[in-house]
Design a binder for these strands. Structure first.
Length: 267
DNA sequence: CACGCCTCCTGTGCGC
DNA sequence: TGCGCACAGGAGGCGT
């Protein structure tokens, strides 16, 4: 469930620890679960990490020699220093004597080394929408994207194309806030503007609280995010809508659990 | 091209 | 008590 706020919280802890460090050795799970998993990881050895950045849910660390290390937490991925247990799938040895362990019980996470800017091995990253909290998330472009698509609004948000970093939790939260039914295929400019603002507000508030922890998500220092108790829609099925009192309903949309208010979220 | 469905994976919690 | 099973959802792949 790491979405943009969780990945950003991890990035903020990882960046000062890794910037300037050189990777002296690397190990990764020899049994891949998908093609191109741990793509070109051998190229890491001897490389210096300049910084740790982020695009959507992807961590992107520029290296020397024109390379980049891409990291994705998947469902249960977490980074910890000098840590060992049965779920460690990759480990980097650093020139300060520490090791960075990538722990990933459900094995949906991935790491890859690529030529800087060449994301052809990572299709979602190569067609990723704008950063929601940056100026390039333009309202006019968002309105145009929503007018053009024929898909239902929630799966469209989850595709990462209209905007980067929104996953199942924050999609439910933002759609509730903007009063839009997750199955809606007609989101005009007024509602698109409300959704644009809601996405920014929901994500910014979650970053302030360092993300949503139910069970697996932890930051590099082992602490949990504090956003879970602030969720209004996700996981709240059966409770009254705080806005109109109608009982929130859970359904399945595109294979994802989806909670919404049938009273005030309009198709 | 883009939509929508299926698959990958395993710890957890529930019902019987 | 123990077993079996549905469920959780990131991205990728592929059929239509």
């Amino acid at each position: 469930m790491p979405e943009l706020p969780e990945v950003e919280s991890v990035r903020r802890q990882l960046d000062p620890e890794l910037s300037g460090r050189t990777v002296t050795d690397a190990w990764w799970d020899p049994i891949p679960t998908m093609p191109r998993e741990f793509h070109q990881m051998g190229l890491l050895v001897g490389r210096k990490i300049h910084s740790v950045g982020r695009r959507g849910k992807f961590l992107i660390a520029p290296l020397d020699e024109g390379l980049e290390l891409i990291m994705h937490l998947g469902m249960t991925g977490a980074f910890r220093f000098d840590h060992d247990d049965a779920w460690v799938r990759s480990r980097l040895w650093l020139d300060d004597g520490r090791t960075l362990a990538f722990r990933d019980a459900r094995r949906f996470g991935r790491m890859a080394v690529v030529e800087a800017g060449d994301y052809s091995a990572l299709p979602t990253l190569s067609s990723l929408g704008p950063e929601p909290l940056q100026d390039d998330f333009r309202l006019d472009g968002f309105i145009r994207d929503l007018a053009r698509t024929t898909a239902a609004i929630k799966p469209y948000l989850l595709s990462q194309r209209p905007v980067a970093g929104v996953g199942n939790i924050y999609a439910d939260e933002a759609l509730w806030m903007a009063r839009i039914h997750p199955l809606s295929r007609r989101v005009g400019s007024g509602r698109a503007a409300a959704l644009h603002a809601a996405i920014r507000e929901v994500l910014a508030a979650a970053i302030e609280r360092e993300g949503t922890t139910f069970r697996d998500y932890q930051m590099v220092n082992g602490e949990s995010g504090r956003n879970a108790s602030f969720l209004v829609a996700y996981g709240q099925a059966g409770r009254p809508c705080p806005r109109c009192g109608t009982l929130l309903r859970k359904t399945v949309l595109g294979g994802r659990g989806t909670t919404y208010c049938p009273g005030c979220q309009r198709p």
